[in-house]
């Protein structure tokens, strides 16, 4: 193994408890779309990862889950290989987890694994760095949401929600999203319907 030029950042302080805690936050996020989950006390992760996207990978990725980084850096690759043992892939379609650090340049959702009709679970989970969360702009409905949920997700390309809606035409196939920003985590499973407010269609 090649020694990295800069010292490797550490992973979880307590791999068992930290992984469990982060997983429960991700589980809550995908179970209750639109409800922000706080994840604190995260170790720093090398760019382009942020502490939150790094923590999700530390908790869930391993040698069985190819990871795709939108803008890979040697530090992030070395860190993921060391702490997760995860293979890094060049093609989005091969990834189980993908980290989108520049959401304005997000590849089409269809570029990622969508699952198969008989195995829709064989699809990618995208961890998207959002520029922040607001409380308006989007109306979410679907499983995990009692009536409806209104919120905003900043920093996405203007046509993003159109591609989300077109993915729903292929349900139950599709990708699942985890938005991260600072210490916050927000889940958007493929089952969530998103209407953009003020834009009658």
């Amino acid at each position: 193994m090649n020694a990295p030029h800069i010292p490797l950042l550490p992973g979880f302080a307590d791999p068992v408890d930290d992984a469990q805690r982060i997983f429960r936050a991700v589980l809550a996020a995908l179970s209750r779309p639109g409800m922000l989950q706080a994840i604190s006390g995260l170790p720093p992760a090398p760019a382009p990862l942020c502490a939150a996207s790094g923590a999700v990978l530390l908790a869930l990725a391993d040698y069985e889950t190819p990871v795709w980084l939108q803008s890979p850096s040697p530090e992030a690759c070395a860190w993921l290989r060391f702490h997760c043992g995860a293979p890094l892939v060049d093609a989005p379609a091969e990834a189980v987890f993908a980290v989108i650090s520049q959401p304005l340049a997000l590849p089409p959702l269809a570029a990622f694994a969508q699952g198969l009709p008989e195995y829709p679970d064989r699809s990618a989970t995208l961890i998207v760095h959002s520029a922040g969360f607001g409380d308006q702009g989007l109306r979410l409905t679907g499983p995990g949401i009692q009536d409806e949920c209104r919120l905003g997700i900043d920093g996405l390309a203007p046509d993003f929600w159109r591609s989300w809606q077109s993915q729903q035409g292929h349900a139950p196939l599709g990708v699942d999203l985890l938005f991260v920003n600072g210490d916050s985590l927000l889940g958007l499973p493929r089952s969530t319907r998103v209407d953009v407010e003020g834009k009658g269609e």
């Binding site: 791999p15 068992v16 992984a19 469990q20 997983f23 991700v26 589980l27 995908l30 179970s31 908790a59 869930l60 990725a61 391993d62 069985e64 889950t65 189980v96 829709p120 679970d121 699809s123 989970t125 499983p143 995990g144 139950p172 699942d176 499973p189 493929r190 089952s191």
Partner: peptide, 18 residues
């Protein structure tokens, strides 16, 4: 921990596809 991760990943997909 590896087994837990594998089951956790399966559970997340299960939640996403009710």
């Amino acid at each position: 921990e590896q087994t837990k991760r594998m089951i956790r990943r399966a559970l997340l997909k299960a939640v996403a596809i009710p």
